[in-house]
């Protein structure tokens, strides 16, 4: 079974009806996020709405500091908004505000919502960051394998290990790094590092790939190679949400959205 068909099966099994009913596999409704800089509140997102269909390649553009990365983090269950909600397959990502007491917040690390967010990051989303964020102590292979380890409990690991290693090898081969398995991130070029990050984001076959300026730190050739990978993934049916400030890069997407004054608008 190909990766694409596997992904298709994963994403259609549960939430197809919910997506059909509400109009998007990944939906953000009325997202507001404010940062406090010193004694000043700086609003970044103001009641932003977004809906991404399964298999869609959406690009979000905006000038530097417009809140693109913040929106991506909110979508990916990494950063909780002050207002609004994100739905994956119709299910809310964040706990309802009114139910979150001080005690609940204090025990966040043990809460049901924390566990749900962890599960979403582990199974549903894959992140690609502008600065790669690879673990410097690990080899290329181990950087990707660690995602599989996070997904597998220590007791299940002995039986799951060989399958995980096969998937990691396959993913690294797909991004053209099968000859670099034992190298450390410091021994790779920027483009190669980003390909490792993509392999890490894809190895667990996420429903949605969230990419934050994936080519922002690369030269033109490396950037083009990364975009080629994204287009290939899109062709296989991978849902992608990409943040970029580069119109050329955004042009690869099905749909381009502009983030301006904390709100999204179609181009």
């Amino acid at each position: 079974m190909s990766n694409a068909s596997q992904r298709e099966r994963d994403t259609t099994a549960v939430g197809a009806s919910a997506e059909d009913a509400r109009g998007g596999f990944l939906r953000a409704e009325g997202i507001s996020r404010t940062y406090r800089l010193g004694r000043v509140d700086v609003p970044v997102l103001r009641r932003a709405d977004l809906s991404v269909r399964r298999g869609e390649f959406a690009a979000i553009m905006g000038k530097s500091g417009s809140g693109k990365s913040t929106l991506l983090h909110v979508l990916g269950a990494l950063d909780e908004p002050q207002e609004g909600q994100v739905f994956v397959n119709g299910e809310p990502v964040y706990a309802p505000k009114e139910r979150r007491s001080f005690r609940a917040r204090a025990l966040d690390v043990l809460s049901v919502h924390e566990r749900r967010r962890n599960r979403l990051r582990r199974d549903t989303f894959g992140f690609v960051f502008q600065f790669y964020h690879l673990l410097p102590e690990l080899t290329v292979f181990e950087n990707v394998l660690v995602t599989e380890m996070v997904r597998t409990g220590v007791l299940r690991w002995p039986t799951a290990r060989s399958g995980a290693r096969r998937r990691v090898s396959a993913e690294l081969e797909r991004v053209g790094l099968s000859h670099r398995l034992a190298h450390r991130p410091s021994e790779l070029s920027g483009g190669e590092r980003q390909r490792v990050a993509i392999a890490r984001a894809l190895v667990h076959r996420p429903s949605v790939l969230l990419a934050d300026e994936p080519t922002g730190n690369l030269d033109a050739t490396s950037g083009a190679a990364i975009l080629a990978i994204f287009q290939a993934l899109h062709a296989e049916g991978q849902t992608i949400v990409m943040v970029t400030h580069d119109a050329t890069v955004a042009a690869c997407a099905d749909r381009v959205l502009h983030l301006d004054d904390g709100q999204l608008a179609a181009k």
Binding site: L78, L110, F127, F129, L135, V146, V150, R151
Partner: peptide, 18 residues
């Protein structure tokens, strides 16, 4: 710190990171 961020972004729990 960044490793912690990366681990959490791939689904590691807070208790796991701790």
């Amino acid at each position: 710190t960044r490793d912690v961020g990366v681990l959490k972004s791939v689904g590691a729990s807070s208790t796991g990171v701790g």
